[in-house]
Design a protein around this nucleic acid. Structure first.
Lengths: 183, 183, 183, 183
DNA sequence: AATGAATGAGAGTTCATTCAT
DNA sequence: AATGAATGAACTCTCATTCAT
């Protein structure tokens, strides 16, 4: 299943071949079918894994006051260190428009993500790190949207710029540029 | 070629079949191969078409002072009225990580887009509609990133929320809520 | 399709392989699928052919007074000269218990056969070659049943004996043994 | 083995799967292979069982004078109550043309059957229930042939008609219709 | 005696591509 | 410029059989 995950990251659903997955693991195709009766089931397994991976990685860690800032940084790091996740999530996103079940899973995932971010905002406001207006669905939505765009592969160096600006608008940018915090 | 474009929008690269493309046009497959010797060439044609479509649609129109705001609104409309474009662009984005040529094309496209937005920002600042700091690569980057995230299919109702917040931060939000313009 | 017919005769449905059918004809498998999209369709074709073959062969020919006797002889000859037909009909018969459509086809075929034999009986009676009681569904039924049993493969030398006795009972046996005609 | 027998009756050799046989019994496939090293051996077992079943069922019972008539009735009943046997015998018959060993077994079985019927005829003649000419291989052959045809599945309602006529010709038909006994 | 796991060989089917016309 | 027919390569899936325990 991990092999399938990697294959999808590397070649997309378009290039997912059960034989190669089996080969990568070093077993016969029949063995693969022993565990995943159909390709469909295998994909379901991959979806589960990707979701789990995504959740566990995008869960805010630490309890410091600057949790939100840390969160954004963590994403930035994640994207660079594990580009596969972005690729697979992208594939899933596209596929979700053709697969009702997957669509549901994705939507749910987005909701969880959205609420997570919203929670971070709420706490930051309460602790006085942010202005009250920042605790809104709109702000959470643009954060998630930007992170989504940034998580996708092939977004070049502009990703960092976008994230930096996001931090500024949120008023959690780097010290020296605090002047921009009022943007 | 338009048929291929539609097919990709509907079924993704994963589901692109030359036979169906030919069938949709009403010609024999051999005839399709007469014009596009290989599937690859056909895809190249689709890429060209998509780029053209994308450029022409995301080109800012009108000359009013509120050009940037109009621009964002136009995108919002486009996404709703022609979801195919978003789907195809998504497919191309993912594919670009496996196709060097396409990667170049996409990057170039993003650069053009980025500069277009940057131009809009510059003009808005010059005309006094926006604070000077808004004319930066960072701001342009987050605009493009958000629009990208919003253009993708299957992003539910949060897309509008994200765009609304973007407008607020840019200080071009709807009149009554101008109070938020300082966010 | 003829090749499939022969394959079924030789190896049964159990041993029908599209690849071998294609090979026997000397074409690629893909070519076979070009004409018969699925194995199922190919089998349908074979059924059609077998029915046609069966009908045309078991149709009474000639107009002589001894039509019925000639008919039985023709069957005897057919069975010996073209054992494939018997084999295929046997396969179809067995298959018909698992295939509703085929079951209908077979039943219809049997009805036609039955009526054909009944017609022969009627004429023989009218022409005075047979006693009136011979023109009945029962007699037709036993003739068809015997012929069916005889048409099947692997019925050894007893087939001829059975047919001979049938002729005797019908009173159309060989001259010298006319004495038995009252059995 | 009984499970295999049932499977063959239901789906034919074509549809015989060792896995389903094992599943029906509730054991692992490996366990099945422990007792029947190969599918071939399993089939041999089924053949044995079918033969035993056939012999024991088609053995004439009772000692009354009307033994032959009872025998035919017994077959009629058997066919209706246990259609599986007919199906399996049909499968075996067809298979025998491809399997020399099975062919021998079947031929032997037919010989036994034939002699059994011949014995019944002889006794009936001796007891004066039938004309002397009835005690012949030909008559035995047509009886076996008709019974064979009747035992096969999918022979509709005509089976009864055929058997009735057989009884008439043999002079052992139902009382009231004795007039037909001379046919 | 029994099993979960593994496998090789092969099945039907698909698809981009080519050929002959 | 267009087509019906043909093809090779590859795909997912199946199945009898074997292996390790």
């Amino acid at each position: 299943m991990l092999a399938a995950y990697r294959q999808i990251a590397e070649r997309g659903f378009e290039g997912l071949r059960t034989r190669e997955v089996a080969a990568e693991v070093g077993v016969n195709i029949a063995t693969l079918h022993y565990y995943f009766p159909t390709k469909e089931k295998l994909i379901e397994g991959v979806v589960e894994h990707a979701m789990e991976r995504f959740r566990s990685t995008l869960e805010p860690h630490g309890t410091s006051a600057d949790q939100l800032r840390n969160y954004l940084r963590a994403v930035r790091r994640l994207v660079q260190e594990e580009p596969e996740l972005g690729a697979v999530m992208g594939e899933l996103m596209l596929r979700s428009s053709r697969d009702r079940v997957l669509a549901g899973t994705m939507e749910q995932m987005y909701e969880v993500w959205h609420r997570t971010v919203r929670g971070l905002l709420k706490r930051a406001v309460k602790q006085g790190h942010m202005r009250p207006e920042a605790d809104s669905d709109e702000v959470a939505a643009i954060i998630v949207a930007t992170l989504t765009g940034v998580t996708l592969p092939a977004r070049g160096g502009r990703a960092d710029q976008a994230l930096r600006q996001l931090e500024r608008w949120l008023g959690i940018g780097p010290g020296p540029k605090r002047t921009n915090s009022s943007n």
